[in-house]
Design a protein around this nucleic acid. Structure first.
Lengths: 155, 155
DNA sequence: AACTACCCGCAACCTGGTCGCAATTGCGTC
DNA sequence: GACGCAATTGCGACCAGGTTGCGGGTAGTT
């Protein structure tokens, strides 16, 4: 499965292991930390280069869950993401939830959407409940990734 | 309409004028350029601070159309965006296109989505037509905002 | 006109990511 | 098992986009 056209280096093997071991949604720095736990000399730029490479090979994809760093996960099991702007809670949205949007985008604009690349922001059930009045999103608060209670970058 | 709790400074007035004059989808640097054409001493950090302020007041919103800088536009006429990953073409998606997604997100996860903050990437009609085989998005190419033919930040 | 809290210009700084380059290292071949 | 060589790595410098602390200026009040 590995190395279609490239070499199998220890750094790459280790990065793949980290990706398979973690259950998805890792930032590049998360992965770097895992890899560097066993191989301290692997440089962050090597991580970035290999993530790029693996993405070009179709092994993994990156998504943006918010204003912070990108998240990487294996390309199997395609899904989008819903991210709470208040608490950072992330839920995986099955691809079929986007079917209606995909259909109308194609019909109205000839557009074929890829719902995976950017998350859909909003408010999770808990934060909707905690909210006093429906403010229609006027009161945006600075988005804090990895905030307390957030599940981003956890392993 | 201006200044609920703040002062009306020349820099702010000028920024608002730039926003109203331009037809939306400006980056902070675009707006800075417009403002600085008449007031060269207005610093980019002042632009950022006032954009933040105006966003907190609900006058405007920012969205991310790709990997580049954020785009700002007036909060009136809520809409999402479809952005072509190949050519940068941006089309405004009316809010009702997201109604189905909003409904299923609420039903399945209690999630209330805000489809405006991040664009939905994909491929525009022209790029779909120009594409030879259905590659299922494995061949991601580096996203280039402001590329030739792109309509981002034009003026 | 005076006062003062808010705002601005500036430069330094920060995060997330990219690049050029010399040294190293897989991997095919002998 | 050693050799050759190009792919890959480690490193530091760099970049884009944005934020922050600070001292001085100015809008709005008295």
């Amino acid at each position: 499965m590995r190395a279609r056209g490239g070499r199998v280096t220890t750094a790459r093997r280790s990065l793949l292991e980290a990706l398979f071991a973690s259950s998805g949604h890792c930032t590049a720095e998360d992965l770097a930390a895992i890899v560097q736990a066993k191989m301290p000399d692997v440089h962050i730029s090597t991580i970035y280069r290999n993530l790029d490479e693996l993405e070009r090979l179709g092994v993994l994809v990156h998504t943006h869950l918010g204003h912070g760093p990108a998240s990487y996960h294996l390309a199997s099991s395609p899904h989008g993401h819903l991210v709470c702007e208040r608490c950072g809670e992330t839920v995986e949205a099955p691809a079929e939830m986007f079917a209606g949007l995909a259909r109308s985008a194609r019909k109205r604009f000839g557009f074929r959407i890829d719902p995976r690349h950017f998350a859909v922001l909003g408010a999770c059930a808990a934060c909707v409940a905690a909210e006093p009045a429906p403010v229609s999103f006027a009161g945006r608060r600075k988005f804090t990734q990895r905030g307390p209670g957030g599940s981003l970058g956890d392993r």
